[in-house]
């Protein structure tokens, strides 16, 4: 299993290389340099700035320099936040975003699986229609619409919960987490319903019934493992989606996290920050995809043994 994981990690290296290369050249081919923005700056100042950031070197050399730095885990200085490195900015925003993503994931998996499994137990009854209609609404209610609506209702009209910040006032983490988690809860509900329905129609569930096992035991022990494999495999892509979603949610709720930095960096044309964060996000997403893939494989004894057998 460890060898398999290492093998997969090795496969991730070319992907990362593609990401870094593509991002680097994309950013460097952008019309207009980072300093040609707003006001007319004297040419000598630009020269000096370019020298400071090594922008006067040929692009190829810059690329390999950057590659070397990235391998060492150094994303270089930020263009706009003078005196701060990209590493510092990521380190500043990461805990907040990680916490937000964690709560959102908890909501997504907890509510999603519960709703999906509940619906699958009595298909085509109210027990199925109610959670599945709710899930459909969740899917059709994107975070950038749900967030403002929640703010309007719970923050402004009812005045129950704070509408901005993170960790400043008690309860200010609730609305952002719900906003970010709801869409994925809805998607996971649909996935787990589908997976459970598939498994519950299998012959071996009938066998378990014929053995006289109780219905809860059949569902927990015989059905859940197979039924939730699609959900497990989805966790990786869901994580990637959560990172993307954090752009919106952190903007709406004014949360000082990575997502907001990224959007701001995009508007500020802070190229080193964008570059560094893209590489960082990509690495995270690839690692999480890997983890959820491996978990899905590990849950299936046949695949697990095939991996053991070949290594």
């Amino acid at each position: 299993m460890i060898k398999f994981a290492l093998g997969r990690l090795l496969q991730a290296i070319p992907v990362l290389l593609v990401v870094i290369t593509a991002t680097f050249f994309l950013v460097h081919s952008a019309p207009g340099g980072p300093f040609s923005a707003d006001k007319a700056v004297p040419p000598e100042v630009i020269k000096a700035l370019e020298a400071q950031y090594n922008l006067d070197q040929p692009v190829w050399q810059q690329y390999f320099n950057y590659l070397g730095d990235v391998v060492k885990g150094d994303f270089g200085p930020s263009f706009k936040y003078s005196g701060r490195t990209v590493n510092e900015l990521i380190a500043a925003g990461l805990p907040t975003t990680a916490e937000l993503a964690f709560y959102a994931m908890l909501i997504a998996v907890g509510i999603g699986v519960l709703a999906g499994v509940t619906a699958s137990l009595r298909p085509n009854t109210m027990q199925d229609y109610v959670p599945m209609t709710a899930a459909m609404i969740g899917i059709c209610m994107p975070s950038f619409l749900l967030g403002p609506l929640l703010v309007l209702v719970f923050g402004i009209y009812l005045d129950w919960l704070p509408i901005s910040g993170w960790g400043d006032i008690p309860g200010d983490k609730i609305l952002p987490s719900i906003t970010l988690g709801t869409g994925y809860a809805a998607y996971i509900a649909r996935l787990s319903r589908g997976g459970m329905l598939e498994v519950l129609s299998q012959d071996y569930i009938r066998t378990a019934r014929a053995k006289g096992l109780s219905e809860p035991l059949i569902i927990i022990k015989h059905a859940l493992r197979g039924g939730l494999i699609p959900v497990v495999a989805f966790l990786g892509p869901a994580f990637a989606g959560l990172l993307g979603g954090s752009f919106v949610v952190e903007t709406i709720f004014q949360i000082p996290g990575l997502g907001r930095f990224y959007v701001q960096a995009a508007f500020n044309r802070d190229y080193t920050l964008i570059l560094g964060m893209t590489v960082f996000f990509s690495t995270l997403i690839i690692v999480f995809n890997l983890l959820s893939d491996m978990l899905a494989i590990w849950l299936n004894p046949k695949l697990r043994q095939e991996i053991r057998g070949t290594k």
């Binding site: 070319p14 952008a30 989606g241 752009f247 990224y262 996000f281």
Partner: peptide, 20 residues
């Protein structure tokens, strides 16, 4: 598979930033 592993959402944002 390789393309699947790429964080496209981020790439599109990047593309929009760079090329207008």
């Amino acid at each position: 598979d390789i393309l699947y592993a790429l964080p496209f959402m981020i790439f599109i944002v990047l593309l929009m930033v760079v090329f207008g």
